[in-house]
Amino acid sequence: MATGGRRGAAAAPLLVAVAALLLGAAGHLYPGEVCPGMDIRNNLTRLHELENCSVIEGHLQILLMFKTRPEDFRDLSFPKLIMITDYLLLFRVYGLESLKDLFPNLTVIRGSRLFFNYALVIFEMVHLKELGLYNLMNITRGSVRIEKNNELCYLATIDWSRILDSVEDNYIVLNKDDNEECGDICPGTAKGKTNCPATVINGQFVERCWTHSHCQKVCPTICKSHGCTAEGLCCHSECLGNCSQPDDPTKCVACRNFYLDGRCVETCPPPYYHFQDWRCVNFSFCQDLHHKCKNSRRQGCHQYVIHNNKCIPECPSGYTMNSSNLLCTPCLGPCPKVCHLLEGEKTIDSVTSAQELRGCTVINGSLIINIRGGNNLAAELEANLGLIEEISGYLKIRRSYALVSLSFFRKLRLIRGETLEIGNYSFYALDNQNLRQLWDWSKHNLTITQGKLFFHYNPKLCLSEIHKMEEVSGTKGRQERNDIALKTNGDQASCENELLKFSYIRTSFDKI
């Protein structure tokens, strides 16, 4: 039985969820670079991206490699990797027998973001014989899940209580170790020597080791999670996991709180800001991140802002960003909400898709409305799209047979046209069989910064309504002859009103 693990408890099935942008060198404390989270699957090609990484700022997932063999891993080693800020997950990587050479110096898994409450997941690794993470000293947050690894031993010899604050939620089941077939031998045991430290858990006094050649490092209890030197002297209180010299914040392997210019500090002093819960960055760093993602459509890219001495992905609820200094300031009234469309555009074809934009005031991208039916549609669209004030790209209304009016965009005031449909149009209306009105132009103002209007096959939309939009939106004169079809717009509506004058002759039985 794995020490510190839980057996036999019912657990939810383990679901495996399925960018080499360097964020800056980590400095003297770390020998390499800070790398983003990685999802490495199918083959070993991307694994080489770990070569210079000291910190993975995010998670590391290595999974679904069915053609790899043990010899493929023999020359692979990433000794610079010290810390993973989120979680480490391995799933069905064939041929991998140990992690001792792959990650010989991995010391800390912070667990800032977890995989279903777990910071370390080893699942269905069919050839893994031992973990071998002999320098792993601290899992700051989260638990361990090690399950269905039929060859995995050296679990009962690990004292997880020396690595985690609590072992109650560890789930370590259905491994070879369960069948008591392992016969784990710690260093020196074969020669009758006791080389590794022994600890007591559940009444068992057991030597602690990761492999037959690597003991588990056990520091004096007084050192807590700070770690200790090879001689057993406690590291500085700002260290986490390990250090090369005692009581020196510049000799830590990793930091308990924050890293700044080669030393570990309790908090980031001005003019620095907390970033990702582990390091200090200056304003320029946060500003660069903001600008890199301002026009990016890459998933996970955030326009970072500053709030409460932190550089964070977005302002919290009730705050909006001051564009001059990136500071989050309290909103006066309802907060603006910028919604970034991942692929640059979004099609609204149902109430469900409209709900995804609920509360958005600025759309960074283009909207395509293609709704053919739905219950209580006008009210639903207004509830979900009615706060949109600005669209950076274009607005396209296409084959939306259920629409009679666009009044559900009740606050839309600006279409920038930074991206144009077919390279020309910022407003595009095609084949809307029941569209009769755009907006009530006596109450609604709309500016279209650039781009043209396109109207074709809107049989109940009168040309007068379209011409009014040209005047109000500032697009009059931009359109070419064929942009607004004269014969297919309003051709099934009563669009022309003329005053009919009647004269009559009164007659009676005795007068003409």
Rank of each mutant, 00 (worst) to 15 (best):
E168A: 15
N295D: 06
L44I: 14
N43P: 00
L102R: 01
V253E: 10
E97K: 11
G58F: 00
G188D: 07
L131F: 02
I109F: 01
C301R: 06
T267S: 07
Q216P: 01
D72H: 11
E180S: 13
N282V: 03
I306W: 01
F205S: 15
D277Q: 14
E130S: 11
P197E: 12
T45S: 11
N149Y: 00
H48C: 05
E71A: 08
W278V: 05
H290I: 03
P36F: 15
H302S: 08
D261S: 12
C335I: 04
L327N: 14
D277E: 13
V108K: 04
E266S: 15
F275Y: 09
V121N: 00
P36M: 03
H226T: 10
L120A: 06
C228A: 01
P336D: 07
D261A: 10
P31A: 12
T329W: 06
L88W: 02
L164G: 14
C153W: 01
T189R: 07
G58L: 00
V265M: 10
L136A: 01
H212G: 09
N282T: 05
L327T: 10
P330D: 07
L136F: 11
P79F: 04
N242Y: 06
C186F: 02
E97A: 12
N117V: 01
G142V: 01
K176G: 06
S143H: 13
N170P: 06
K148P: 04
Y304L: 09
C215W: 04
S225D: 03
R279N: 06
P31F: 11
G37A: 15
R110E: 05
C215Y: 03
H127V: 01
W278L: 01
D277T: 07
Y319Q: 14
E130F: 06
E97Q: 13
T85L: 10
Y94L: 14
S225E: 06
E97G: 10
Y171S: 14
V121L: 01
R110L: 13
C182W: 05
P36N: 15
N43S: 08
K193C: 12
K294A: 15
M83S: 09
L99E: 00
L99W: 02
S143Y: 06
C239V: 04
H226G: 12
R256F: 11
D39M: 05
G32A: 05
V200G: 04
H290A: 04
Y94T: 06
E71F: 13
I139D: 00
T199Q: 10
L96A: 01
M125L: 01
L260F: 03
E124T: 00
L240W: 03
L106F: 02
C268E: 02
E51C: 15
T140N: 07
H226F: 15
T211R: 03
V34P: 07
T157W: 13
L29F: 09
L99S: 01
C264L: 00
V253H: 09
R298F: 06
R162P: 05
K67E: 04
F116Q: 00
V34G: 06
K148R: 10
Q287R: 13
D159P: 04
C301D: 05
L76H: 05
L90A: 14
N202H: 08
D86L: 01
V121K: 00
F116P: 00
I201C: 12
A156Q: 08
S161P: 06
D86S: 04
S244P: 06
D86Q: 13
H127K: 02
Y134S: 13
C235T: 00
E33C: 10
A254T: 11
F66S: 00
T107Q: 00
T329V: 09
N170H: 05
H214D: 04
D277Y: 07
A254K: 05
Q287H: 08
D184G: 15
E168T: 13
A156R: 14
P104N: 01
C315W: 01
T211S: 08
L89T: 02
C209I: 03
S284E: 14
E97D: 05
G232S: 11
K67V: 05
G318A: 08
N309E: 05
C219L: 02
M137V: 08
Y304G: 03
H48V: 10
G300W: 05
L155I: 07
L120G: 00
N150L: 13
P313W: 15
L63F: 00
K67D: 03
G262S: 08
F285E: 03
V200Y: 05
L50G: 01
P271Q: 13
Y134V: 05
H302G: 12
H274N: 15
M38V: 04
N170L: 09
T85N: 04
C252M: 05
N195Q: 12
T199P: 05
V121C: 13
K217Y: 09
D177H: 14
H302Y: 12
D75T: 10
I306M: 08
M125T: 01
K129S: 06
I139R: 00
L76E: 06
D178R: 11
L136Y: 00
